[in-house]
Deep mutational scan, measured.
Amino acid sequence: MKTQEELTEIVRDHFSDMGEAATLYVQVYESSLESLVGGVIFEDGRHYTFVYENEDLVYE
């Protein structure tokens, strides 16, 4: 099982292909040891929320 830090790095790496991230945040109260819930805000103003669970990243 991966730590939240490892899950955060996986998510950060995925979003790095989409541009320069200004902020990546984790909603600790919705996350667990198995999943990471949060969002990313890019330098150009785009904002996505995400759920990373079971090696699957879903974002909108």
Rank of each mutant, 00 (worst) to 15 (best):
M1S: 10
M1P: 12
M1C: 15
M1H: 11
M1Q: 09
M1G: 10
K2D: 04
K2M: 08
T3G: 05
T3L: 06
T3M: 05
Q4L: 15
Q4Y: 12
Q4K: 09
E5S: 07
E5T: 07
E5N: 07
E6D: 06
E6G: 04
L7N: 02
L7R: 02
L7C: 11
T8C: 15
T8F: 10
T8V: 14
T8Q: 08
E9R: 14
E9H: 08
E9C: 14
E9N: 11
E9T: 10
E9Y: 05
E9D: 08
I10N: 03
V11K: 01
V11M: 05
R12W: 12
R12Q: 05
R12Y: 06
D13T: 13
D13I: 14
D13S: 14
H14M: 14
H14T: 05
S16V: 07
S16E: 05
S16R: 14
D17P: 09
D17L: 14
D17N: 14
D17M: 14
M18C: 14
M18T: 05
M18F: 10
M18G: 04
M18E: 04
M18S: 04
G19R: 05
G19M: 07
G19P: 03
E20I: 14
E20K: 13
E20D: 10
E20C: 15
A21E: 08
A21M: 15
A22C: 15
A22S: 08
A22V: 14
T23I: 14
T23G: 03
T23P: 06
T23Q: 09
L24Q: 01
L24N: 00
L24K: 01
L24Y: 07
Y25P: 02
V26A: 00
V26F: 07
V26K: 00
V26Q: 00
Q27K: 11
Q27S: 12
V28K: 08
V28S: 11
V28D: 06
V28E: 08
V28L: 11
V28F: 14
Y29G: 03
Y29P: 01
Y29F: 10
Y29C: 12
Y29W: 09
Y29L: 05
E30D: 14
S31T: 06
S31P: 13
S31W: 12
S31R: 06
S31Y: 11
S32L: 09
S32A: 11
S32F: 09
S32V: 09
S32Q: 08
L33D: 06
L33R: 12
L33T: 14
L33F: 09
E34N: 14
L36I: 11
L36R: 00
L36E: 00
V37G: 01
V37P: 00
V37E: 03
G38C: 13
G38E: 02
G38K: 01
G38Q: 04
G38A: 08
G38N: 02
G38I: 14
G39W: 15
G39H: 12
G39F: 15
G39R: 11
G39E: 13
V40K: 01
V40E: 00
I41H: 05
F42A: 00
F42L: 05
F42C: 10
E43N: 09
E43H: 09
E43Q: 11
D44F: 13
D44I: 12
D44G: 03
D44C: 10
G45E: 02
G45R: 01
G45F: 11
R46K: 04
R46D: 03
R46C: 11
H47A: 05
H47S: 04
H47L: 07
H47C: 13
Y48T: 00
Y48N: 01
Y48S: 00
T49N: 04
T49G: 01
T49H: 13
T49D: 03
F50G: 00
F50D: 01
F50P: 01
F50S: 00
V51I: 10
V51R: 07
V51S: 06
V51Q: 02
Y52A: 01
Y52K: 00
Y52E: 00
E53I: 13
E53Y: 11
E53K: 11
N54V: 08
E55V: 07
E55M: 10
E55W: 10
E55T: 06
D56L: 15
L57I: 09
L57A: 02
V58W: 12
V58F: 10
Y59E: 03
Y59Q: 02
E60Q: 12
E60Y: 13
E60T: 12
E60I: 13
